[in-house]
Nucleic acid binder design. Structure first.
Lengths: 167, 167
DNA sequence: TTGTGTGCAAAAGCTTTGCATGTTG
DNA sequence: CAACATGCAAAGCTTTTGCACACAA
């Protein structure tokens, strides 16, 4: 079940996309809107292939090429963000109406947690001025071990210690 | 011509690598040292393929597989760092004896500039505590347009304006 | 001597491209 | 109806794997 609030939000995002397509003299194809909608129905970080498969599952007739193509468009008009969390496969997330945030990634279970810190903005401004860059965006990822995986590792360590003792 | 200082630095790094290989019961093969040396002779960010080609050019007989393999080892023992600056192709840089730093990348000319800011460390500590993550490392990249490319864009804009006027 | 590391080539995985067809403006 | 966008499949690129051989321990 999709909430009314979400429906309105998606409608708003579609309007923004429409305006962008018009301004750039690009065509308003059904595929482009289907892809946008599918992204805004999700709440997680996703990969191009996951999105493509989900669309097939829902019996939409779109091709990988169109998915990649549309992702690029959506990045251009700032409706989604693309991330490279160390893997080769890029991850994407919707970005309209969401607070700017950064990510902490668990190197064990790959869980992604979001966080905000105002100091990032300060650093951006300061470094842009200092190095004479017009900074448009940034990507800050912290990597480490989440609480759950820390416990797992400790349990594992105890187990290994016991095994070694028996040897 | 390679300076004495650099020779000493490379020797030091090789010792660290030797110790690491010993500790992990891994073999000290000539290929591993050749790759390490080649990396520490460079001063830039490089890609796996670039390194491989440079080694071939110097008539060393190494394979791509060994290059990738050794890069992984060098990451494990903290002698190099791996970056994903938005492209699919990973970039690497030597890291021993160099201050921890982050990167600003020009989206036009792809130039990479390094910078340091102590606030990053503070954010790492604070967020680790707050979200219960044991943070091991991070990656902060800012993207924008460098001074040179800003001028180029302005010149281009003037040119386009003139052309449109003539229309 | 023994088993790990290597070279080589082929496979795998993500993304892009070319071409014929379909659809938007 | 003329471009432009799409679907499909094939190609492209980076990275990984399998296998036989070489060589460090």
């Amino acid at each position: 079940m999709i909430s009314n609030q979400r429906k309105e939000h998606i409608a708003e995002v579609k309007n923004i996309f429409s305006a962008y397509l018009e301004q750039k003299s690009l065509r308003k194809t059904s595929e482009r809107y289907i892809i946008l909608e599918e992204i805004y129905l999700r709440d997680d970080h996703f990969e191009a292939e996951m999105l493509y498969e989900e669309l097939l599952r829902k019996k939409y007739r779109v091709s990988r090429a169109t998915v990649y193509n549309t992702l690029e468009l959506l990045i251009s008009c700032d409706l989604i963000k693309k991330h490279q969390f160390g893997k080769n496969q890029a991850q994407y997330e919707k970005s309209y109406g969401y607070k700017q945030h950064d990510h902490i990634i668990c190197v064990d279970c790959k869980k992604v947690v979001e966080f905000c810190d105002p100091r990032i903005q300060q650093i951006k401004t300061m470094m842009g001025d200092l190095l004479n860059f017009k900074i448009t965006h940034h990507s800050l990822n912290m990597y480490g071990i989440c609480g759950t995986c820390q416990k797992k590792r400790e349990a594992e360590a105890v187990k290994n210690a016991t095994t070694n003792q028996t040897k």
